[in-house]
Amino acid sequence: MNEEEGGAPAGVTRRTAIGGTVAVGSALLLLDAERVEATVQSSPPPRAGATLAIRPIVNGRAAPVTIDPRTSLLDLLRERLGLTGAKKGCDHGQCGACTVHVDGRRVASCLTLAAKTDGREVTTIEGLAEGDALHPMQQAFIDHDALQCGYCTPGQIMAAVACVREGNATDRPTIREYMSGNICRCGAYAGIVAAIEDVAKKGRRV
């Protein structure tokens, strides 16, 4: 049994991301070479203290940016790259609202140092749809009204996609267990489970 299967799914992934054990190689192969050329526009670097230059690949595009080395991936996305889809619900790795994918695996971006994503592929909710076509999980969340205020929703959807890819969307109890790192205070859990079950049953590639 690897570490992911041993405990709370989101929590363990966070630790491995910080520990630097995430495999980098395979993710870069997935990149569309042309899209990498285009770069993500960031706001100007901080006029304060020590800085660090990094170049994560965010939603398929390089995002060269100079950061305060203490910056979390969540704050990088939200405050510097203008990607506010990932939400801050606790900043402590306790709620899952900030869930994004790093090299294809779900992480709590509030507990991931931005510095650790240098050269890695980061996917956020903004990178899930293909143009106007919603990702099947996004559509399923609409169909099952798997949201109310919508604040936890980007994190839920990123976790849900990962849940299916990990092979943990096998039945309702398993889905519930592997989605328990993402709190929905509005209580949309029934819809979230139904949406994931729907996508998993249709056998669509996510």
Binding site: T84, G85, A86, L134, Q138, I142, L147, G150, Y151
Partner: peptide
């Protein structure tokens, strides 16, 4: 009928106060 703002919410486009640039 579907929730009127569900689409912007699943896209991460719904703007909450701290999202305003």
């Amino acid at each position: 009928r579907p929730r009127v703002d569900a689409r912007e919410k699943v896209l991460g486009q719904a703007q909450y106060a701290a999202d305003v640039a």
